[in-house]
Computed example of a mutant assay.
Amino acid sequence: MSADAKTLQAMLTLLANAGITPDDLQAAASQADSGAVSTVPTVAQFVPQVAEVTSPTTRRTYGTYWKLMVAMIGTLGLDQVKPIDIARVAATARDKSVQRRNGRGGVGAQENAISAMRVIFRHAVANKLVGESPALAVPKPRRKKSTRRGLSDDEVFQVWEVVASGGDDPELDALLLRFFLETGARRGGALGLRLRDVNTDRQQVRLFEKGDTQRWQPISATLLDALLAHAHHRGARDPDESVFRYRAKAGVAVGRPLTRRRLNTLADRIQEKLPWAGELGVSPHWFRHTAVTAIERIAGYAVARAFAGHTAENGEATNTYIKAQETEVAQAVQTMTGESHPLARQAEPDGRRT
């Protein structure tokens, strides 16, 4: 074999090992000849642009998965990403997810990763950077049945004893527990609650939660007073300041706003002190289940659905016709707490309701 032939063979072997085919070389040559330069941004270039125009809630929910997406396929142009790339990122998110006692094998993380990448490519399609979303071609995993449920009265009592008698700030923890058990709020509802979101006249709190939703939830006068007293004693004065706060440190007038870390610590302590809670993986979301279940037992499905802030129809046409009114939710909260509420409907002597 001549020297030129040996050189050519070595080059072909090198290209083959790099996964470059003759067709790839021809396409690259054609592009160079035409002077065409791709204007489609890479994943790493486009993700920050999407993050900039999405809400804080969306960024908080999907930020971790966007970082993973950039780390794994960030150098690819948006038009180069294939469904298999989406599947690989989602599988990695599943494998890296924190495994908890009541976990479901990382299915939630895998599902969230796919949702996060669908958001990116929805913007890419809308901006005509790609023709279709490769993320839509990757199905979300089937959800496993949740083990969460409402707690029994005895279980709530045990949790209350642990929360109110231990830790470095039982006052804060007890108020959080009361808040979750009475409002059925998600974590975001507590973390995002500001002084301006407490309406004393209508005896309600405004909850900002998943999907950038917000709703006004009736609460008892006892809880309302406790929330305002807590915020005041810990230095909150401005309407935009958070209600739930840590104790102020020495020499500081205002305590820091509550963070998710506190809720995680609270769950860890409950699970450590109560073996059954540890086995089940009881967390603040269990208190939401408890509250919604209590309202359903009192007032039925439609009122419980409104109380929980659920809006998805799930293909059930009946849900379109059974939307509960604000007064009905207040009536149910009144029954649950044993305290009168200004928005509750009161029965007239002849049985009608005002």
Score class of each variant (00 low, 15 high):
Asp225Pro: 00
Leu177Thr: 09
His232Thr: 14
Thr21Lys: 14
Thr290Gly: 01
Ala137Cys: 00
Ala90Arg: 13
Arg215Ser: 02
Thr318Glu: 08
Gly131Phe: 12
Met69Leu: 15
Thr265Met: 13
Asp95Met: 14
Tyr321Ala: 05
Lys96Asn: 15
Gly167Asp: 13
Ala5Leu: 12
Lys140Asp: 00
Val81Thr: 05
His310Glu: 03
Leu228Cys: 02
Val81Asn: 05
Ile86Thr: 00
Lys96Val: 07
Pro22Trp: 03
Glu339His: 04
Gln110Ser: 07
Gly108Met: 09
Arg353Glu: 09
Leu14Asp: 14
Arg122Thr: 10
Gln49Gly: 00
Glu132Ala: 12
Leu176Asn: 02
Val329Trp: 06
Glu209Gly: 12
Arg305His: 08
Arg100Thr: 12
Asp169Phe: 11
Glu111Phe: 00
Asp240Ser: 07
Ala3Lys: 15
His232Trp: 12
Thr320Met: 08
Ser242Cys: 09
Leu151Arg: 07
Ala312Phe: 03
Thr213Leu: 10
Ala185Lys: 04
Met336Gln: 11
Met11Cys: 06
Gln346Met: 08
Thr92Cys: 02
Lys6Ile: 07
Lys96Cys: 02
Val119Gln: 15
Pro139Met: 08
Leu263Thr: 00
Leu151Ala: 03
Asp85Trp: 04
Lys210Phe: 04
Ser146Tyr: 02
Arg148Glu: 14
Arg186Glu: 09
Ala306Val: 03
Ala126Pro: 01
Leu15Lys: 13
Thr7Glu: 15
Ala109Glu: 11
Thr42Phe: 10
Val254Leu: 08
